[in-house]
């Protein structure tokens, strides 16, 4: 049912050419000017759920392109089509696995390109355009599709798709237009003056709620990733903390046994002389947040504790007798490994 917003929003594929003009907040000129710097990419895929196309943005006049890392790029030949229909074979320069960015290059000159301007982030409520090869409907010399919306929020990314978890956890723009569809990843997010403010992200769901996310990586992060790739020093994806390794029992908390998956995270008891008992945790306390992160269920408790490293501060928020009580458990003790 996600096609309705597209029908209702401004989906534009314009074939007219407009001269580069002074920056003004006129939507038509803004879109026309910015869309020239957005390219359609075609590579591997083409089976259900794995589209063979996405979007990229030109960031230099000699043909450097930034896009998102994806299976589309797993092709022997990546085709890049400019807004005027010119076709290039793109080569993969490098990737940034942490931000999931990739840089491609084409042999061109005097190409229109975005400036990777690392200005202040846009505040919530700012109007934006998203320009992308949405669903691959723009073909040949047709410009990419434009959608309009606002920055709905700026939040740290916590996203996944199935078992895959997004490695980037910094701030992203959440958008109120539907960009989480095939072809959008790698598209340009521009403000109403045509400045690049972000790169449209992959099709992911929010970890907390499971809803599809419409998000974009802010331009400052795009610029950092681009520099690292060009400079040959991309940050590694980093080792994710093992999720099952930490046993909450080392904190001295014993939860009420889970009968038929029907038991909320109530404290049954605390071990004497443990961080939990020293923090004043009591039987029948209902755990509701750990380090400020809401934990509504037992699985949420496990998820919130899993990424904590030895020595990280641990604070439990509980409901006791209808009131909120904060319990500071101090630094996380090391997990005792069974011999």
């Amino acid at each position: 049912m996600r096609f309705l917003p597209l029908l209702l929003s401004l989906v534009i594929t314009i074939g007219v050419s407009v001269d580069p003009s002074p920056i003004r907040a006129a939507p038509g000129e803004t879109i026309a000017g910015a869309a020239r710097k957005v390219v359609k990419l075609y590579g591997a895929g083409g089976v259900r759920g794995l589209e063979a196309f996405q979007t990229g943005i030109l960031v230099s006049a000699d043909g450097q392109i930034v896009t998102v890392m994806s299976t589309v790029l797993d092709a022997e030949e990546i085709t890049c089509v400019l807004d005027d229909g010119r076709r290039y074979v793109a080569t993969l320069t490098g990737i940034d696995p942490r931000r999931e960015l990739a840089v491609l290059s084409i042999k061109g000159e005097d190409l229109p390109a975005f400036v990777l301007d690392e200005s202040e982030p846009l505040p919530t409520g700012s109007r934006i355009f998203a320009l992308s090869n949405l669903f691959g409907v723009a073909v040949g010399d047709e410009r990419v599709s434009a959608q309009h919306g606002v920055v709905a929020g700026v939040i740290p990314l916590e996203a996944r798709r199935g078992a895959y978890e997004a490695p980037y956890t910094g701030d992203v723009y959440i958008l109120d237009c539907t960009t989480n569809n095939p072809g959008s990843p790698g598209g340009a997010l521009v403000d109403w003056q045509g400045r690049l403010v972000g790169l449209l992200g992959k099709e992911l769901r929010a970890t907390a709620s499971g809803i599809w996310l419409n998000y974009a990586l802010p331009v400052a992060e795009v610029a950092r990733g681009y520099r690292e790739i060009i400079g040959g020093t991309p940050t590694a994806a980093g080792d994710k903390p093992a999720t099952a390794a930490f046993d909450p029992a080392v904190l001295g908390v014993v939860l009420v046994p889970d009968v038929l998956d029907k038991t909320p995270p109530f404290v049954e008891s605390t071990r004497p002389d443990s961080p939990a008992s020293r923090a004043g945790l009591r039987p029948d306390d209902l755990l509701v947040a750990i380090n400020g992160r809401a934990v509504a269920s037992r699985s949420a408790v496990r998820q919130a504790l899993a990424p904590l490293a030895d020595g990280d501060p641990v604070r439990f928020t509980v409901i006791r007798g209808g009131a909120i009580v904060e319990c500071d458990l101090g630094p996380r003790p090391p997990t005792v490994r069974n011999p």
Binding site: G210, L260, P264, L286
Partner: peptide, 19 residues
């Protein structure tokens, strides 16, 4: 707060769950 696993139903991938 105070949700059971059964209430969540493990449906995070299929439908909006509890956030």
């Amino acid at each position: 707060a105070g949700l059971s696993e059964a209430g969540i139903g493990g449906a995070a991938e299929a439908a909006p769950a509890t956030g």
